[in-house]
Design a protein around this nucleic acid. Structure first.
Lengths: 247, 247
DNA sequence: CACGACTGGGTACGTTGTACGCGGTCATGA
DNA sequence: TCATGACCGCGTACAACGTACCCAGTCGTG
């Protein structure tokens, strides 16, 4: 009953006052879990597997973490720590936001399983809070907090949506167990059926364009990002926007 | 071996040619699964539970659906069918996109569990394809397909990101088992700790603003949406944009 | 009318998260 | 100094899950 009061992992202290020295730590457990999830997906990071990885018994993990769900929250916050926002209100708001967007997307591509960790986004862990301070601090001097929140929703939504698309494809192929080429080959009959039905002209155009892509994935991402930043620029007051980017 | 070739549920025909009349159908199973997920979350929609709901034995479902993952894909596409895009290239591109955005967000709020269905977005089911045709058809006459895709990524990313935030909160409270007020009350000590530490000034500003919100959730969503649409408007050629919306 | 492709569904297996309880350890208060 | 009890690691156990396998019954087709 006393433990049930903690509604979030961040409210529960890792170390109690008394007792013998613990052999592991939340950080070590989280590290192992992230390593496994990177290599084989989040579903492979079971409690037993993580415990075996650090040489512990399965149930020992529950001395450090109340549930697997909370552990995943710890993992997500650890990932947020990888994003470099050092010295972030630098004066050039556009450069700052590009750096944040690129860093966030790169982190997603390094850890595709983050897309399946649903509670990753709202848990106010320390790294998440650090990101909020740094990134929202960029526009904070120029905008009321309401508008800042709205514009960040647009930026963050774009980056995460784009990353989710890329990563979803990666995970789809990984989960199917066959290689990317094989996956494409097996999908071809259905694709052909869609194209030949003639009912999906726009989709057909997309599919045919995708066969000879004129923009790399990075370029596609950058195109949309610059569009979002242009949008943000028009919402700023009479500040000096940096000239259009070198694109 | 012959079945394993189907890499997607949409490539697998529901009805084979011969044999006795089946008692159920994919549509009926999907309907029951959606109803359960709406009421108790996606994790409550287990195979046994769904089967019991329609009066079938647990294993009978596998005559219609190869796996639970594929069933979830069917559920997701069924949800896409709820979004009204009738007669969608209507001539007023801005009104069309607002209608789509509102419909998508409303659908998410009706079915919060969609946030946890990770493969929902890439499975080219019939309703998904119908959406693509209608929504991308709106800007298709005015833009090359590449730019259309880029702008749709911005729009879709914003709507889905905003919906995901709202829904994540709803699901967080639901999963905690306690009511919303109780959840807030239990989080207050941690929030107070964050505020009093003085390390998170921007976050503090957000938290204090949230105590006396000047915009409803709907209004917040609309603010960002209009911003995104403004952004899209500047990317259109010399077409006639409708005047700024009644906001 | 016999065949065999199909049906619904019961049984069973492997894996999961985790509740519970054991014997050992160590900071603390008498 | 030493007994106390809070904490440790962890083995056992259980309920619930997805689903492989098998069976007897059904029905379109030769």
């Amino acid at each position: 009953m006393s433990d049930a009061e903690h509604v979030s992992i961040w409210m529960r202290p890792e170390r109690p006052a008394r007792g013998p020295k613990p052999a592991y730590s939340r950080a070590r457990i989280t590290e192992a879990a992230v390593r496994i999830a990177d290599a084989e997906g989040l579903e492979a990071a079971t409690m037993r597997r993580i415990a075996a990885d650090i040489g512990a018994g399965a149930m020992s993990l529950y001395r450090y973490v109340p549930s697997r769900d909370d552990l995943i929250q710890l993992m997500a916050d650890r990932l947020m720590g990888e994003i470099d926002v050092e010295g972030m209100p630098s004066g050039d708001w556009r450069a700052d936001l590009v750096r944040y967007a690129d860093g966030l997307r790169a982190m997603w591509l390094r850890h595709p399983w983050i897309a399946t960790a649903n509670r990753a986004l709202l848990g106010f862990g320390p790294n998440q809070l650090r990101l909020i301070e740094a990134v929202m601090g960029v526009l904070d001097p120029h905008l009321p907090i309401d508008e800042n929140l709205g514009l960040m929703a647009v930026l963050h939504g774009y980056v995460e949506g784009a990353a989710r698309d890329e990563v979803g494809w990666i995970e789809e192929v990984r989960r199917s167990g066959v290689g990317e080429d094989e996956w494409l080959a097996r999908s071809r009959p259905y694709l052909r059926h869609l194209l030949e039905s003639g009912e999906y002209p726009v989709f057909s155009r997309i599919a045919l364009e995708a066969n000879r892509p004129r923009m790399s994935r990075d370029q596609q991402f950058r195109y949309g990002l610059e569009r979002v930043l242009d949008c943000i620029a028009t919402s700023l007051p009479a500040s000096l926007p940096p000239a259009l980017p070198p694109g």
